[in-house]
Simulated assay, not measured.
Amino acid sequence: MQPGALEVEAVQPSIRRVAGLPTVGIIGGGQLGRMLALAGHTMGIRSIVLDPDPASPAAQVVPIALTGSLAELASLRELARLSDLVTFENEWVDPALVRALEIEGYSVWPSSQTLGYIQDKFHQRRHLQQAGLPVPRFRAVDRLDQLADWQQWPLVLKTRRQGYDGHGVRIVPTAAQLAAAWEELAGQPLIVEAFVPFERELAVMVARSASGEVRSFPVVETRQQQHVCHTVIAPAPVSAAVHERAAAIAVAAIEAIAGVGIFGVELFVEPDGTVTINELAPRPHNSGHYTIDACDVSQFEQHLRAVLGWPLAAATMHSPAAVMVNILAQTTTEQAQPDLAAALALPGVKVHWYGKHAARPGRKLGHLTAVAADWQIALERALSARQVLGV
């Protein structure tokens, strides 16, 4: 099976509620796996992590960490053998390998079918469009001359797979600049999309269980720096109508792909209130980190509830407003030394450090969240905390 191919007959994973104190296998040992394991720990869930790095962020907080490739069935099978259920913190596992585990009877969520819908951006766009959901105009392209008739500028040229945080994406202002952008991304399957003249970028975390129960967290605004999420404002300072529209589209998108677990739905909103889907992420997402400190349930606990078949919690905020700021390294050092005391001296601020020792510009070392009576105060506190934190 080609990675991401949708033509292959899907295997229906077993739907069952896991009883007792389960063991959950996590594919990937980055910061999302770390926070997923920590959320499970409070409920008595034992987590096992598989990652090529024996000192990965998640490996530091779990009782068992397997060292192995995420691209080899033998490693994935060993993780599944030791677990009651397997899930992801990284969506770039070949769906064919996940399907092999499903055929062998292992419970894996999200399913290989859902991963296939999402991993390839063309398949993702096409599936959402067929479900009647708003997506930008798009086209799969293999050759530059296939864009000779494209009239809508700017356009967005993307790799169909593996692009994230601005990697594999080029915004092309005019036809005269298309050839240069094409050369930068050539040699891999590409998709072209119409540029959406958005006013804001929004996101919604949506949880769906195998039984079909759905809960969505508040709509948030995300602000980027150099194509990387830098700030998240919760709830988003937009009208009630936009909130309602964005939440409804996000839920419909996850239902359309039969998602099980937590999903990040990235959206554009235009000045007239039009909401369009940007991309989907089949895992905990940067835009949902604020939920740890500002909601009745975190995105990580909600994900575990969903994949284990447990009841989903009300995804409501217990603080009027929250702002999350990513701690993106500004310098290169082998041992980052954040000034935690200075950041924590500010009211309503929580710091989450990911256990990454070495820093390089742009690397995500952690995040901090500030809660307050309104988002402007929370934003001021969060940015001040980030400044005094250093690194």
Rank of each mutant, 00 (worst) to 15 (best):
F198Y: 14
N286C: 02
G264W: 04
V24T: 02
G264Q: 05
T369I: 01
R160V: 10
V323F: 01
L97Y: 05
E104C: 07
F138Y: 08
V388Q: 04
L379F: 02
G273N: 03
Q129C: 06
T231V: 15
A207L: 09
V204T: 05
S298L: 09
V62A: 07
S83W: 03
V135A: 03
L6R: 02
G366D: 10
L379M: 00
E213K: 00
F263P: 06
G105K: 03
L280A: 03
L70K: 13
W92M: 09
S216G: 09
D120P: 03
V141W: 01
F195A: 13
F268C: 01
L280Q: 09
L128G: 05
H243T: 03
L76K: 05
F198V: 05
T291G: 03
I262N: 04
A370Q: 05
Q12H: 14
G348L: 01
S287D: 10
L82G: 00
W182K: 03
Q119T: 08
P110N: 04
V275M: 07
G390M: 08
L147T: 09
S209A: 12
Q387E: 14
D145T: 04
T174G: 11
I26M: 08
H303M: 00
W92Q: 15
L50W: 01
A281P: 00
G105I: 09
Q12T: 15
A258F: 00
A140Q: 04
A385P: 02
Q335R: 14
P52Q: 14
I27G: 08
A313W: 00
A250G: 01
K356H: 01
A58G: 11
A345L: 00
S69A: 12
